[in-house]
Amino acid sequence: MKSRQIYWEDIEVEEEIPGYDMEIDARRMVLQLSGSQDHYPIHFDRNFARAAGHEDVFMSSGFTEAALVRVITDWMGDEGWLRKLRLELRRQNRIGDTMVCKGRVASKYVQDGDHYVECEVWAENQREGITTPGRAWVILPSREGSQR
């Protein structure tokens, strides 16, 4: 599936970045271990997680980063470049949650010839609200021809 290409000039500040949602279930936990290769037991061993003071096992930072990178890469198209992404893992996404990942354009500007869009991105769920606020700096192609 190829996403349509967006251009810097077409982006409006405050515009929503659509994103997607996914169920966190046992299958997702297994996919997380395979995909991230993060075998720290806090992400799959309930006794280990509870001994450390957590209510339950929770999704890893590698998984959460992948989820929010996808929000941006699905949106920016093949010619976009994710220059920087910063995430704060403040609350947890756990089995039974629906994790919703999306974003919003915060500002746009030109710097050193690159056409930047700065975006808020976040993951949220029905239990905690926003669990992972973040910010992404994306370079988009310009209709005037400049492209990273």
Binding site: Y20, G35, A66
Partner: peptide, 10 residues
């Protein structure tokens, strides 16, 4: 495998 965990089809 990394893409699979978040259903990324890019």
């Amino acid at each position: 495998r990394y893409c699979h965990m978040v259903e990324d089809r890019n």
